[in-house]
């Protein structure tokens, strides 16, 4: 019999405590961010899709077309093409295509790039009407980024 009343009182008390907690939080300020109106700044190490880095001296990409990134990528989303210009010693980058639909943001490409020619972008607002919209021409993106 005492167990019966114990159950009754401890049960009721636990319920009351619960109500108290939710009421307390009801009056506390909200913790969410109102996303499209407010946005967060991504941390410096945030891994977005990759982007080419511009060489400040030449204004061109730092890429030396060694193809290491392409080889390292587990998903095969990078295609690098270079050409040897007349009289130049080294190859220069002609196209750099990233198929972002397959990218797993693992960072192996960035890690394997000796001249540090690629970095992670801080883009996260990505939306597109088709799959093809995610096949990025990174050379073009770099040019657009640099000429405001």
């Amino acid at each position: 019999m005492s167990g019966y009343f114990n159950d009754l009182f401890s049960g009721t008390k636990s319920l009351a405590v619960g109500m108290g907690i939710t009421l307390k939080y009801f009056f506390e300020p909200v913790v969410t961010l109102q996303y499209p109106h407010e946005t967060l700044k991504m941390t410096p190490r945030f891994r977005g899709h990759i982007d080419l880095v511009k060489d400040e001296e030449t204004g061109e990409s730092k890429c030396i077309v060694c193809g290491m990134c392409q080889k390292a990528c587990p998903s095969g989303c990078i295609t690098v093409e270079g050409e040897k210009k007349e009289g130049a010693k080294k190859k220069t980058l002609s196209s750099y295509t990233l198929d972002f639909t397959k990218c797993s943001l693992c960072g192996l490409c960035v890690e394997n790039c000796k001249p540090e020619a690629i970095t992670f972008s801080k883009d996260y607002n990505l939306a597109g009407p088709s799959r093809e919209a995610y096949v990025f021409d990174l050379v073009k993106r770099m040019k657009e980024r640099c000429s405001p």
Partner: peptide, 13 residues
């Protein structure tokens, strides 16, 4: 609204 505020969100706005 109430659920949102209990959960410290804003709810419909």
């Amino acid at each position: 609204k109430e659920a949102a505020h209990i959960q410290r969100r804003i709810g419909p706005k």
